[in-house]
Structures are given as structure tokens and as C-alpha cells.
């Protein structure tokens, strides 16, 4: 179970951290935010593609969409096809298999 993220105040950051760490953390945060936005756009496009597949078939909820070819968060890495009904319990497992200890999630989705 991941620890609950704690919110750091501006004062905490300015006075409590090394200036070099703050600079590196800011750069990392900016880049991560860009990656998260790109990832969201990719998922939006995937949703469009899956809808188009079902439109071509004329039926929804029956096509066995293949699982991602490489590990991504929220998919069973051992499954051959997408496990339907899985969206109701979204997994927070990142691409590499370790469980996150603690991290800010406010920029994630």
C-alpha cells in the first residue's frame, strides 16, 4: 500500500530543500507533466480507434482487443486480450513492476 502523499507548502520547499534539488525537481516535474499530457492524448486516440473498430463490426463490447504489446500501467501483462470490466478498478501499477512508495498524483490524470 502506497503512503498517502503529503502536500509540501511553498515555504517547505524553499526553506526545506537544497536549491539544486529544487532545480532538478522542477525540471523533472515540467518534463513529467509533458509526458503525462502526451500519454493522455495517446489514450484519447486509442479510445477513438477502439470505437471505430466497434463501429465497423456493428457490435460493442464483444471484440477481443489485444493486450498492449509492452507492459503499461493498468493492464494485465500476462493477458492476451484486454480484460473487459477492468476499468472499474483502475490499477496504479506503473510500467516497471515495482509498487510506488509515494509520489504526487495531482499531475497524473
Amino acid at each position: 500500500m502506497a503512503k498517502k502523499p503529503s502536500t509540501l507548502s511553498f515555504r517547505d520547499i524553499v526553506l526545506g530543500a537544497d536549491a539544486e534539488v529544487i532545480r532538478q525537481a522542477h525540471e523533472a516535474r515540467v518534463q513529467i507533466d509533458q509526458l503525462v499530457e502526451e500519454r493522455q492524448r495517446a489514450y484519447d486516440r486509442i479510445a477513438e480507434l477502439e470505437t471505430q473498430v466497434e463501429d465497423v463490426l456493428g457490435e460493442t463490447g464483444v471484440f477481443p482487443f489485444p493486450a498492449p504489446p509492452l507492459p503499461v500501467a493498468g493492464f494485465d501483462p500476462k493477458a492476451d486480450t484486454v480484460t473487459r470490466g477492468g476499468a472499474k478498478k483502475p490499477a496504479a501499477r506503473p510500467a516497471d513492476s515495482a509498487t510506488p512508495a509515494a509520489a504526487e498524483d495531482d499531475s497524473a490524470e
Binding site: Y43, E50, A73, G74, V82, G85, A87, D105, A108
Partner: peptide, 12 residues
């Protein structure tokens, strides 16, 4: 590891 959550998809 970044704590990603997956958005819902039609395939769900």
C-alpha cells in the same frame, strides 16, 4: 515508479 492510473477505454 510513477503512480500512473489508466483512463477508461471502450475495450473495458
Amino acid at each position: 515508479p510513477y503512480p500512473f492510473t489508466r483512463p477508461p477505454l471502450p475495450s473495458d
